[in-house]
Design a protein around this nucleic acid. Structure first.
Length: 442
RNA sequence: UCCCCGGUAGCUCAGUUGGUUAGAGCAUCUGACUGUUAAUCAGAGGGUCGUUGGUUCGAAUCCAACCCGGGGAGCCA
């Protein structure tokens, strides 16, 4: 419980989720009117404060008749300070309720657009009202889980000797073509919003050993699927002297840590979202690891013809992930479908030392990582073969000129991770204000 | 960029051989009710049927173009 400052005449303020500890006390609850029901001389005000909702019971006569009448007609989402005694009552949702002695209307609301008939099928309407939709219980729960996932991510790396070194948002040149980059005017020259901090993370790893970057990422792809945003958050660890097996171990430990940490603190929110936490807690090490070659074989064995050399599409991933009940690690893809900076497998020059982590239940690729090419001449050849401007990469090539070492890392898409954890169908609900094709408001 | 679906009240939707004044639930407004749980009950207001053009005596309904949105593919995290 905290004490008030501005309105010190009111009893101590209590958040809704703390009310059970204050049965018998008179407290103030600050929040918004979630719902209202009346029964003649009896009025039920359901108040939401971000930590939960509580039912406040008001008898006619407890306040002046004129105020009772005003409260009996109060629009949804009006903001209130309610003073009342905390009482246990089995008839109240949540077990405790407020027996009201005073109410202050802080802000009278206009008729609220999101009404009972609006459900999650009304996508365009809810997206246009995203700023209000956040007030619904499912959206608020999702954002609390997102916040906890972010903390779990930072805690995992911070407690394992990693240094957080965020990459720049403005970048000078494309690392993989400009078609998927957002161009901005940078004092007369073109610049681009970052679509990965990986190259910068590699530079930082040569200075600090173990680093991670965490920030927004921008992709100008015109993707319209439940797995895509044009602006999303990505965490990218990078470790000097790490080999592909180390990268896969790190990814596994990382995912298990996020799941257990988040469930530890957010079980109620996950259950509100109808997510089966026990099922998630079965995601323990080791995760299945298969090579691309084995994956191709599995696809063909399961009546899903697939030719070696192609990248997996969403339907291919679905077939593969349905064969397992844990995240699936697929490693050593054909180099031709992967980025120029990935190291080749010394045992098979056709494949790259890379790994994709595919989440179960159709959430797709949540992690992509690799061991990086550490040989200067190989990178020079790759840049030429990919038709990239070498001068833009001189700084990156310097990392191979001045004490090159094996190293690797991966990137995890935050919203895809949160969507999988929450069981949310579309990742747009897993970021406060999603940016998509056709969507930049609010 | 390609494929599929849609656009009727603030919201969700119904509305076909083309035919009076376009309906329902929720929301809003008015009233009733001393334990409601998405409260209930009675009444009221609320519409450029996405836009433009065409066919027709007559179009929400049929045709065309366009606009907007949704789902998926590709690409990716």
């Amino acid at each position: 419980m905290t004490t008030t400052t501005a309105d010190s005449d009111l009893p101590a303020i209590c958040r809704v989720n703390q009310l059970p500890a204050h049965v018998g006390s008179t407290v103030t609850v600050q929040g918004w009117l979630n719902n209202r029901r009346s029964s003649g001389k009896l009025l039920f005000l359901q108040l939401r404060d971000g930590s939960g909702t509580v039912q406040a019971v008001l008898y006619k006569g407890a306040v002046e008749d004129s105020q009772f009448k005003e409260l009996d007609a109060l629009p949804q989402e009006s903001s209130l300070e309610i003073v009342g005694e905390v009482k246990e009552d089995a008839r109240s949702p949540g077990g405790v309720e407020l027996s009201v002695t005073a109410v202050r209307v802080v802000g009278l609301a206009e008729p609220y657009p999101i009404t009972k008939g609006v459900d999650t099928d009304s996508t365009a309407f809810l997206m246009d009202h995203r700023h209000l939709w956040l007030r619904s219980s499912r959206q608020a729960a999702t954002l609390r889980i997102r916040s906890r996932v972010i903390k779990a991510i930072r805690d995992f790396f911070d407690s394992d000797g990693f240094t957080c070194v965020d990459g720049p948002i403005f970048t000078p040149a494309a690392c993989e073509g400009t078609s998927t980059l957002f161009e901005v005017d940078y004092f007369g020259d073109p610049a681009y919003l970052t679509q990965s901090s990986q190259l910068y993370a590699e530079a930082a790893a040569m200075a600090l050993g173990k680093v991670y970057t965490f920030g927004p990422t921008f992709r100008a792809e015109k993707s319209k699927t439940r797995r895509h945003l044009t602006e999303f958050w990505m965490v990218e660890p990078e470790v000097a002297f790490a080999r592909l097996d180390d990268v896969m171990d790190l990814a596994e430990n990382f995912l298990v840590s996020i799941i257990s940490e988040t469930i530890g603190d957010c079980r109620a929110d996950l259950e509100l979202l109808d997510r089966d936490c026990d099922k998630l807690l079965k995601m323990v090490r080791p995760f299945p690891r298969i090579s691309y070659d084995e994956a191709v074989e599995m696809l063909n064995d399961n009546g899903h013809p697939f030719e070696w050399g192609n990248d997996f599409g969403a339907p291919d991933e679905e077939v593969l992930t349905k064969l397992f009940d844990k995240p699936l690690l697929v490693h050593r893809f054909p180099a031709q479908v992967k980025a120029f900076y990935m190291k080749r497998d010394p045992d098979d020059d056709r494949v790259a030392l890379c790994v994709d982590v595919l989440a179960p239940e159709g959430y797709g690729e949540i992690i992509g990582g690799s061991e990086r090419a550490d040989d200067l001449q190989f990178l020079l050849d790759q840049i030429k073969a990919h038709d990239l401007p070498q001068e833009a990469f001189e700084w990156y090539l310097d990392l191979r000129r001045y004490g090159t070492v094996p190293h690797g890392g991966f990137g995890l898409g935050l919203e895809r991770m949160v969507a999988w954890l929450c069981g949310t169908h579309h990742i747009r609900e897993c970021i406060p204000f999603p940016r998509m094709l056709h969507r930049i408001y609010p």
